[in-house]
């Protein structure tokens, strides 16, 4: 059992998400930075779909009432173990009665705490991921609070053999400098003027304080729309289209762009102009409020190559963790 004594700002239990219900308005939820979540799981011997605790800007403080093997990845929140600093991206043993405390993020925005066996909350519609809007998954469908008790899943084997495992520097992202996310332009970007299309890919955008699991609202130049007679059913504003489905990662432009994230609204009537590729959504999720973001247009084959490279890196990490002792 893990007892939460401070829930941080917005910490939730997440796995890789809940699929098959987008057509009734249910987004996948799941870890915002899938890479950091997956590496944390590998470091403690879990599969990638085990549930971890995702922490945003400020981490949790937790005491363990049983021995456990843990790893913290993602944003650096200066974690301590019984008051002593511990490394991130590294497997750590904790004993019954020990305390883990995470502070505020110095680099990046989201950290992941994995524990061997996974966080054992009940599955809802096939996933343990928290979706706070309707209150399902995770700990009672909400962010963690002081007093919550999270069960640790059954371990098939003792993973203390992994303690001290760490991933090479080349596998640790540099959140402070990674400001470019790749996008495939399109969807309904015919609504933008040529100038706004160019702005989208050339301008410096900054993450606004309204950036959460639903979407990242960005500040930057004003978006301008091509003039047209609005088609039947589209609504009167030039940013309106006939309501359509929004891909996860898509950039919609009610005015300021919003990149939809894991708890996305699934559809609506704003023009969409492109989609952040799957491997770069986690990079955006690590950009802090007020930090800059640039969109780099790529083609589908580049996106698929990047995805394959991500798979390769993760299997290298898994192999490295499991082979050494």
């Amino acid at each position: 059992m893990i007892r939460i004594t401070d829930g941080g700002i917005a910490s939730t239990v997440q796995d890789l998400g809940r699929f098959g219900n987008y057509h009734i308005g249910m987004p996948p939820s799941g870890a915002m930075d899938e890479y950091a979540h997956t590496v944390a799981n590998y470091l403690v011997g879990n599969d990638e779909d085990a549930a971890t605790i995702e922490m945003t800007y400020q981490g949790v403080t937790a005491t363990f009432d049983e021995d456990a093997v843990v790893a913290i990845t993602g944003a650096d929140m200066s974690p301590t173990h019984n008051g002593d600093p511990i490394d991130t991206w590294t497997t750590v043993a904790v004993e019954a009665g020990d305390e883990l405390e995470l502070s505020f993020a110095t680099e990046g925005a989201r950290a992941y705490l994995a524990v061997a066996g996974g966080i054992d909350v009940p599955e809802v519609m096939g996933s343990r991921s928290t979706y706070t809007l309707v209150g399902i998954g995770g700990q009672d469908g909400r962010t963690l609070e002081d007093g919550d008790e999270l069960a640790i899943g059954e371990r098939t084997e003792d993973r203390r053999d992994l303690v001290g495992e760490t991933v090479g520097d080349e596998y640790v992202p540099e959140y402070a400098t990674e400001d470019t996310v790749r996008v495939i332009l399109g969807l309904t970007d015919y609504r933008l003027t040529e100038e706004s299309k160019a702005d989208l890919c050339e301008a410096e955008w900054t993450v606004s304080p309204e950036a959460d699991r639903v979407g990242y609202r960005l500040d930057g130049p004003d978006i301008e729309f091509e003039e047209r007679d609005q088609p039947f059913g589209a609504g009167t504003d030039p940013s309106n289209v006939v309501d359509l489905g929004y891909p996860v990662g898509s950039i919609q432009v009610p005015q300021k762009p919003i990149v939809l994230m894991q708890d996305a609204v699934t559809g609506g009537g704003y023009a969409t102009v492109g989609t952040v590729i799957s491997v770069d959504r986690g990079r955006l999720a690590q950009r802090q409020t007020h930090k800059s973001v640039y969109f780099e247009p790529v083609e589908i084959d580049d996106a698929l190559t990047a995805r394959q490279e991500r798979h390769d890196r993760l299997s290298e990490i898994r192999k490295e963790v499991e082979l050494e002792d």
Partner: peptide, 13 residues
Amino acid sequence: MGEQVKSPMPGIF
């Protein structure tokens, strides 16, 4: 001696 109170995170004050 005194104290500078800082914001631990980005946002709106």
